[in-house]
Design a protein around this nucleic acid. Structure first.
Length: 612
RNA sequence: GCGCCCGUAGCUCAGCAGGAUAGAGCACCGGUUUCCUAAACCGGGGGUCACAGGUUCGAAUCCUGUCGGGCGCGCCA
C-alpha cells in the first residue's frame, strides 16, 4: 500500500504531465495535509506557483488541473473543490478509506501494516551511543543512544540495510593507567575475570587516576602499559580486555532496559582502528602533501603537528581560529600520537570501503558540529564520497538536556547523573503513580505486585525516552519528571493509556472478536472517519520522519492518533454499538489503532502494556 | 572576532522543502461518569510568531541587518 500522499501525488502528476508535457514529470504537485477540516483532507497548492510561469490565472489553472486528473481520481476522492487564490481541496471518499483499511493484512511479524519497503533501499551506517569504557553511562549518553537507535529502527522499517556502529571509547592513554591499576589491585581479574566484578567503574577509574598523580612509580608503570598495550603484550591485553568486558556488563543491561537494539556485535570501538591510523595518515600525506591548485586540502606539519588545512573554492582558508589564522584538522599530534580526528577518518574510510555504506549517519551532540564539518569536508576532498555510487554523510545533532534551572542537568553536587540512577528514579516515580491509583477506590485496577512492577518499568522508561524523542532534537530541552509522567499531553503514559483502553475493550469483548476480524469497516461518524484517516497517515509520517531524520514527526503523529482515538472512544461505543456490523467495524478500527500505536512505539523502542 | 543553533500564549514546547483564521500541554474559568479504563473527553479566555527591512499573489517559515540567549573555534573526545 502506498501512502495517501503518494497516491495523490501520482494522480496529480499525471494531470500536470497532461498540461505541461514532460516538464510535469518533475513538477511537485505540492500535496499537503489540509490545515482545516473545512478544506477537506489534503490540498494541492501547485496552481498558484505554476500560474505565474504559465501566465494564467491561478484559479483557471486549478480548474484545468482538476479537469486533467485521470478517471481513477474519482475512485479515491470526492469531487475537487477550488478555493481561495487557487487551492485545490481534496476530500477522500469514506468508502475508499474503509477499503484501504480493510485491505491491511492481518498481523504478521514484523508487523508492517501493509506498508511496502521503500523504493531505493541502501546500506546505511548509523553511529550512535559510543559510551566510554571504564566509566558509567550518564545522562550525556542518553540522547545519542535513544535517538540513534530510533533512527536505525526507522531506516530498517522502510527497508534500508542498517549497520549499527557503537564507536566505544576503548583506547587511549588512560588505558595504560587502568591496566597498571588492575594488574596491581585485582590480579585475580586476569586469571578468572568472570568471578570478579567492579561495583563501580567510575570509582575504579577515579582511584587509578588519583594514584597516577600521586605515585611516580605508578605513573611510570602506566606509561609502560600504554606501550605494552600497543604492542599487544598478552598480560596487558588481558587486563584491557577485562576492563572492556566489565564495562560491557555494565552498559548492556542499560541498553536492554532502555529497549536499545545495540548488541556487542555492533561494537567497533577506537581500538579497532588503532592499527589503521598510520595508514590513513600516510594516504593523506601522499595524496595531499604537496600543494595543488585543484585540491581543497593541503596536508603539512604545523607547530610540530601534522595538519589538514581546508581551502574554499577561491583558495581561502575554510576554517579559522580566533586569531584569524587557518584552523586545521590535526591528524597527528606533535608527540607523534594520533587523536580522535584520525580515528574518525579511519572509521569513515572503513565504513565506506569495507562496509560499503551509501550513507553514514553520526548521532552526536551539536557541539561536535565543527569537527564533523571538517571530517566531511576532508572525505569530500579525498573523493571518498564518490565510492559506492555516492556516499551521503549526515551529522544528526541534538541539544542538551537541561535541569529546571536551564543549566545542563547535573546532580546537586554538580556531577553527571548516572543513567542507571535516572532510570531507577523514573521507574520509582511511575510506581508511585500506580500505587496512588490503586489507593483510590474509584481508580483501582486491582494490580498485583508483579503487575505494578512491570507497568512501572514500562511507563517509567517509556516516559524518559518519549519525552526526549518527542522534542525537536535540535533544541535543548528541560527535563521534567512531572511532564514526562503526565497523562495529559504528548507523553508516553498518554499513548500507553490509549493502547491499554483498546486492549481492555478486547478483553471485555473477547468472545466476539475472532469471527469479526475481517468485517466491513463503515465510517459514518466523524470520529470514525478521522480515526481511519489518521491510521492511514502512518506511512507518509514515516516517510517524512526518515527523510528529515526527524523523530518528533513520529511522536506528533502518535499523539494525534491517540487524540483521535480518545475522541472516538468517547463518542462511539464499540462493544455496545447499535448493530453487529457497527460493532465489528469499530473493533477493527480499534485493532488497527492498537497495531499502529504499537508499531510506532516499537520504532521508539518503547513497550506497551495491556493494562495501566 | 568568526561559525553553528535558537528567540512562537504567563510557563514548557510543536509548526519552519512558504499557503487559507499560528497549534498542543500546563496553569486559569466552565461542563461531562447509571455507558467498553474519568490517569480520559468537551467548551472558554489568552499571540505585534524578538525587532527592522526585503523577496512573493501569499512569510512564523526564505534572504539581509539589528538586538537577546546557548554552543563551538590546534595538538581532549
Amino acid at each position: 500500500m502506498k501512502s495517501l500522499v503518494q497516491q495523490l501525488q501520482t494522480l496529480f502528476r499525471r494531470a500536470l504531465i497532461e498540461i505541461l508535457g514532460d516538464a510535469g514529470r518533475d513538477a511537485d504537485p505540492m500535496i499537503r495535509a489540509a490545515g482545516d477540516e473545512r478544506f477537506g483532507d489534503y490540498q494541492s497548492n501547485v496552481a498558484m506557483g505554476l500560474a505565474k510561469m504559465l501566465q494564467t490565472k491561478p484559479r483557471d489553472l486549478a480548474q484545468r488541473i482538476v479537469a486533467a486528473l485521470p478517471q481513477e481520481t474519482n475512485d479515491l476522492c470526492e469531487p475537487m473543490e477550488i478555493a481561495g487564490p487557487g487551492f485545490i481541496n481534496i476530500r477522500l471518499r469514506a468508502d475508499r478509506l474503509a477499503e484501504m483499511l480493510e485491505a491491511v493484512p492481518p498481523t504478521t511479524a514484523p508487523d508492517r501494516l501493509g506498508i511496502e519497503p521503500g523504493e531505493r533501499p541502501h546500506k546505511v551506517v548509523v553511529d550512535y551511543s559510543g559510551p566510554n569504557i571504564a566509566k558509567q553511562m550518564h545522562v550525556g549518553h542518553l540522547r545519542s543512544t535513544i535517538i540513534g537507535d530510533t533512527i536505525a529502527r526507522m531506516l530498517e522499517y522502510v527497508g534500508h540495510e542498517v549497520v549499527r556502529q557503537n564507536h566505544i571509547g576503548d583506547w587511549g592513554t588512560q588505558f595504560g593507567m587502568l591496566c597498571a591499576f588492575l594488574k596491581d589491585k585485582m590480579p585475580e581479574a586476569l586469571s578468572a575475570p568472570e568471578t570478579v566484578h567492579l561495583e563501580d567503574l567510575e570509582d575504579f577509574y577515579r582511584q587509578a587516576s588519583a594514584r597516577d598523580k600521586e605515585d611516580p612509580a605508578f605513573h611510570e608503570q602506566a606509561r609502560a602499559e600504554v606501550v605494552a598495550l600497543h604492542n599487544h603484550e598478552p598480560s596487558t591485553l588481558r587486563a584491557w580486555q577485562y576492563i572492556v568486558d566489565e564495562s560491557r556488563r555494565h552498559y548492556m543491561p542499560i541498553y536492554r532496559r532502555l529497549g536499545v537494539s545495540l548488541t556487542p556485535a555492533d561494537e567497533r570501538g577506537e581500538s579497532f582502528y588503532a592499527e589503521r591510523l598510520s595508514e590513513v595518515v600516510d594516504e593523506f600525506r601522499e595524496r595531499f602533501g604537496t600543494e595543488s591548485p585543484a585540491a581543497r586540502i593541503v596536508v603539512r606539519p604545523d607547530q610540530g603537528a601534522l595538519c589538514i588545512f581546508h581551502l574554499t573554492a577561491e583558495g581561502e582558508p575554510r576554517f579559522k581560529n580566533p586569531e584569524d589564522q587557518p584552523l586545521p584538522m590535526i591528524i597527528r599530534k606533535s608527540d607523534g600520537a594520533f587523536l580522535y580526528a584520525t580515528t574518525d577518518l579511519a572509521a569513515l574510510r572503513f565504513r565506506i570501503r569495507d562496509l560499503g555504506a551509501r550513507q553514514v549517519i553520526y548521532v552526536t551532540d551539536a557541539r561536535q558540529a565543527l569537527h564533523f564539518e571538517m571530517l566531511f569536508a576532508t572525505a569530500e576532498a579525498a573523493s571518498w564520497t564518490t565510492a559506492n555510487d555516492g556516499v551521503q554523510l549526515d551529522h544528526v545533532t541534538f541539544g542538551s538536556i537541561l535541569g529546571e534551572d536551564r543549566k545542563p542537568l547535573k546532580t546537586r553536587s554538580g556531577e553527571n547523573i548516572k543513567l542507571a540512577d535516572l532510570l531507577d528514579e523514573a521507574v520509582r516515580r511511575a510506581e508511585q503513580l500506580i500505587r496512588a491509583g490503586e489507593a483510590d477506590e474509584t481508580k483501582r485496577r486491582g494490580f498485583n505486585e508483579e503487575q505494578i512492577k512491570d507497568i512501572a518499568e514500562a511507563v517509567g522508561i517509556g516516559a524518559v525516552k518519549y519525552a526526549d524523542l518527542s522534542q525537536n532534537r535540535q533544541s535543548d530541552y528541560v527535563f521534567s519528571w512531572d511532564k514526562m509522567l503526565a497523562m495529559e499531553g504528548n507523553t508516553a503514559p498518554y499513548m500507553m493509556y490509549a493502547y491499554a483502553r483498546i486492549r481492555s475493550i478486547y478483553r471485555k469483548g473477547a468472545e466476539t472478536i475472532g469471527e469479526k476480524r475481517d468485517g466491513k469497516i463503515v465510517l459514518d461518524e466523524s470520529a470514525e472517519r478521522l480515526l481511519a484517516r489518521q491510521i492511514l497517515r502512518f506511512p507518509e509520517t514515516i516517510e517524512a520522519a526518515v527523510a528529515g531524520l526527524k523523530i518528533n514527526l513520529l511522536t506528533d503523529y502518535l499523539y494525534a492518533l491517540g487524540g483521535v482515538f480518545m475522541k472516538f472512544y468517547e463518542s462511539c461505543p464499540v462493544l455496545k454499538a447499535d448493530t453487529p456490523e457497527r460493532k465489528a467495524s469499530r473493533l477493527r478500527l480499534c485493532e488497527l489503532t492498537a497495531r499502529t500505536l504499537r508499531i510506532g512505539l516499537d520504532l521508539l523502542g518503547i513497550l506497551v502494556v495491556e493494562r495501566m
